[in-house]
Design a protein around this nucleic acid. Structure first.
Length: 583
RNA sequence: CGGGCCGUGGCGCAGCCUGGCUAGCGCGCUUGCUUGGGGUGCAAGAGGUCCCGGGUUCAAAUCCCGGCGGCCCGACCA
């Protein structure tokens, strides 16, 4: 056994990393289709090529980077006792039908049929498969807890793939699943993941924040997302500059802002008035001279096939997520204009809660205690004044309002910020949803059959790379963190036809390999400018430039991020870089 | 699904409106020389189903119809 192969090597130090022999197709110009920076640089840097909408090939550099990322992920997962598996991406319909998600996933799921006409799908996530394994094998509380994970390709037929690798139809995900005997056990598994994720993202060199996330309509109790601030992102995070509060916009709460004007006092009854052509809140506000906060916004949604009237204050917006958890809906959508006409006998611009009987009426908490407001009259071109919740109609109250920037923090009252983010990880207490629908039970200490409680946890591998580029780039290209850059260091002889420089560069290259650096030798017969530009573009953290100073036995070590250069004796260049990276 | 834009050598584009020489430019690529500290310069080359199909026409990259593909915006905001 002289060749011991480590299961998960972190460094990939191959023998002959000569630029002239490698496939690194850099581009001078930005391909027209790329709009976000990470997409542009991944294409220009020769990391990726597009095959179709939301489908990318990962070339040599991207693959190296992704291997480094997954190596870190593996180490941190292994460190919490998680066991790596690999489940099939091709799934039979049955398990998805059992959990009920065959229908719920809708058009986001890639579906196919085999030669016998059986339904199959490509896995978007693996709760079903994991649960089906667990239920076949786990029998006793003594086998718990278990944490199982995989790093695998997921398929999602996105409505609109976009932004390079940020939203795609096929991507690599680390997904793990925990199985525990009780809620306290789940807490432990959850916290382990929380820690492991922090370590993983720290090691990947990302700046990120952990935010409270929406835990779904399915009874999940807790959820956090790991977010990297970026304009290329699609999620909004609410953050308080005053305290540590941070949450996904979907979930975030804030103190009710006071209405912009006091409600009229008095015991009035609703009274219709003519509002020709006044359809929007803004229209009405101008028409009546009253602020938007004096109105009730009436939204009609069809939830699990039934209409629901949701009311928020005129200047507030409905949070879809809060709505769906409030009414425990599996699926919902805004009502079509014809449905609104059928239900209310009026157009969307003139709807209100008074006299509505045939559906659930829910209202945001900010309407509780208000008096004599304005609402639609359910008659085209008419509205009602003097509408008082609790008297003129009886709603169920929930927190339904989406937080807006500037709202007061629930915790400390400071004005909240809204930040655009890329989601790189998500941890989630699932509860009993899958063990219940799919029958995963074990015997407890008392010999009773109990459901297993589950958690699920995901990391978007390509998103780590994309987010890092979004975070760390300049006009010359990427400036990747060393841990995830495809190489640690590039050795660049300025003039490759100069025999002394050439020899020295080769020596330094060997030195680097000896100290276990992931090194690339730019042995191309190119002008120095070309080599510098390319090295900067593909984002290698360190460059050792072998040039004129070689006459004095010196080479330059350049930091990609700061562009600062330091003269180092030729013999110490490799050690110097290794020391910098170790820092 | 709604709206907008686009499809011409590997990449970025012009040509299309107003149909007509051999389809052009820059970059990249090949060969030779040159240069050698931030995408050197010169010269000679290679490389094209103008997305696909149909139609109009003496003639289509160009006009018309139909497809396919890609990008962006929106899809609760009443």
């Amino acid at each position: 056994m002289e060749n011991t192969i480590k299961v998960q090597p972190l460094r990939y130090t191959e023998n002959s990393m000569l630029w002239s022999k490698l496939f690194i197709p850099t581009l001078r110009e930005n391909p027209a289709e790329a709009e976000v920076v990470s997409h542009q640089l991944l294409l220009r840097g020769g990391y990726i090529r597009q095959l179709g909408a939301g489908i990318y090939s990962y070339l040599f550099l991207a693959q190296r980077s992704l291997l480094k990322i997954t190596a870190i992920v593996r180490q941190e997962m292994d460190a919490i006792g998680a066991q790596e598996m690999l489940l099939p991406a091709l799934n039979p319909a049955e398990i998805w039908q059992e959990s009920g998600r065959w229908d719920i996933m809708g058009d986001n799921m890639f579906r196919l049929r085999d030669r016998f006409g059986r339904d199959l799908c490509l896995g978007m996530t693996h709760e079903e498969v994991m649960t089906s394994i667990a239920r076949g094998e786990l029998r006793s509380y003594k086998q718990l807890p278990q944490i199982w994970y995989q790093i695998q390709t997921k398929f999602r037929d996105e409505l609109r793939p976009k932004s390079g690798l940020l939203r795609v139809r096929q991507f690599i995900m680390k997904d793990s699943y925990s199985f525990d005997i009780d809620a306290a056990g789940l807490d432990v598994s959850y916290d382990k993941h929380y820690e492991a994720y922090c370590k993983t993202f720290d090691r990947c060199g990302l700046q990120y924040s952990v935010v409270e996330a929406h835990s779904g309509a399915m009874g999940g109790s807790q959820s956090h997302e790991f977010m990297v601030a970026s304009d290329a992102g699609e999620d909004y995070v609410v953050r308080c500059p005053g305290c540590k509060y941070a949450a996904n916009l979907e979930k975030a709460g804030s103190r009710a802002t006071p209405p912009l004007a006091a409600d009229p006092e008095g015991d009035f009854s609703p009274e219709p008035f003519h509002t020709p052509g006044q359809k929007t809140i803004d229209d009405l506000s101008k028409f009546t001279g009253l602020p938007e906060s004096s109105q009730m916004k009436s939204l009609v949604l069809i939830a699990d096939g039934k209409p629901v009237l949701a009311l928020v204050r005129g200047d507030h917006s409905l949070s879809e997520t809060k709505f769906s958890s409030a009414i425990q809906a599996i699926e919902f959508r805004p009502a079509h204009p014809e449905e609104i006409r059928d239900l209310f006998g009026a157009e969307a611009g003139s709807l209100g809660p008074v006299g509505v009987k045939n559906m659930r009426v829910i209202a945001d908490e900010a309407l509780q205690g208000r008096r004599n407001m304005i609402a639609g009259a359910n008659k085209d071109d008419y509205h009602l004044r003097h509408v008082t919740p609790g008297e003129d109609f009886e709603p169920e109250y929930f927190d339904l309002r989406a937080v807006a920037a500037g709202d007061a923090c629930l915790v400390c009252g400071t004005a909240l910020e809204l930040i655009k983010c890329v989601e790189i990880g998500h941890i989630f207490k699932l509860g009993y949803r899958y063990s219940e629908t799919m029958g995963l039970r074990v015997l407890n200490e008392a010999g009773e059959e109990v459901k297993v409680i589950m958690g699920s946890y995901g990391i978007g591998v390509e998103r780590i790379l994309s987010a890092a580029i979004e975070l760390y780039h300049d006009k010359d290209g990427m400036a990747l963190p060393p841990a995830i850059a495809p190489f640690d260091v590039v050795v660049t002889p300025v003039n490759y036809s100069d025999a002394a420089q050439r020899t020295a560069a080769e020596e330094i290259y060997e030195d680097c390999r000896k100290v276990d650096l992931d090194v690339l030798l730019d042995d191309r017969d190119e002008r120095p400018g070309v080599k510098f530009k390319d090295a900067d573009l593909i984002g290698i953290p360190w460059r050792i430039t072998v040039g004129k100073k070689l006459a004095q036995g010196q080479v330059e070590v350049v930091d990609r991020r700061t562009k600062k250069s330091e003269d180092v004796a030729k013999e110490y260049a490799a050690a110097f870089v290794a020391a910098q990276i170790a820092k």
